[in-house]
Design a protein around this nucleic acid. Structure first.
Length: 105
DNA sequence: ATTGGGGCCTCCG
DNA sequence: TCGGAGGCCCCAA
C-alpha cells in the first residue's frame, strides 16, 4: 500500500457529519509530520466526488483548500450538516474524528 | 493575529 | 537519474 492509497483509506473512514484533520491522518499513517504531504495526496486524488476528502480540514478549524474549489468544499460540508462560518468550521472541536491507524508495511 | 521556518511527498525540467 | 519547486500544512516566536 503506497502513501497516497493509505491517505485515501484513512480519509474514507470519516463518517458523515464528522471531520478530521490533515495532521490526524498523518498520525494515522505513523508519520506525524507529513501533514503537508497528506494534503498533496488528497489534492491529486483520482475521484474527488467519490472520495470525501472535503471532510478533512486544518487543525485550527479552517477549511483549508480543495481541488474543486474552497466554495465547493464548503457546500459539500453543508450537505453533511456541517456549517462553515467565516472560513472556519463551526464547533469543529466536537465533531472531530480520529481515523484508525493504517498499517503501512 | 501575523510571520517565518521546517519536514514530507510528488511532479516537472 | 538528479534537483528544485510547490502543495488542501503545522508550530513556535
Amino acid at each position: 500500500m503506497d502513501f497516497a492509497a493509505s491517505v485515501l483509506y484513512a480519509a474514507a473512514q470519516v463518517p458523515r457529519g464528522k471531520v478530521t484533520t490533515y495532521k490526524m491522518i498523518a498520525e494515522a499513517l505513523g508519520k506525524a509530520d507529513s501533514c503537508r504531504a497528506v494534503g498533496s495526496a488528497l489534492n491529486k486524488n483520482p475521484d474527488p466526488h467519490l472520495m470525501p476528502c472535503y471532510r478533512v480540514i486544518r487543525s485550527d478549524g479552517r477549511v483549508g483548500g480543495y481541488a474543486l474549489g474552497e466554495s465547493e468544499k464548503i457546500r459539500l460540508l453543508a450537505v453533511d450538516g456541517i456549517a462553515v462560518e467565516g472560513g472556519r468550521v463551526a464547533g469543529y472541536r466536537s465533531i472531530l474524528f480520529r481515523p484508525a491507524p493504517v498499517k503501512v508495511p
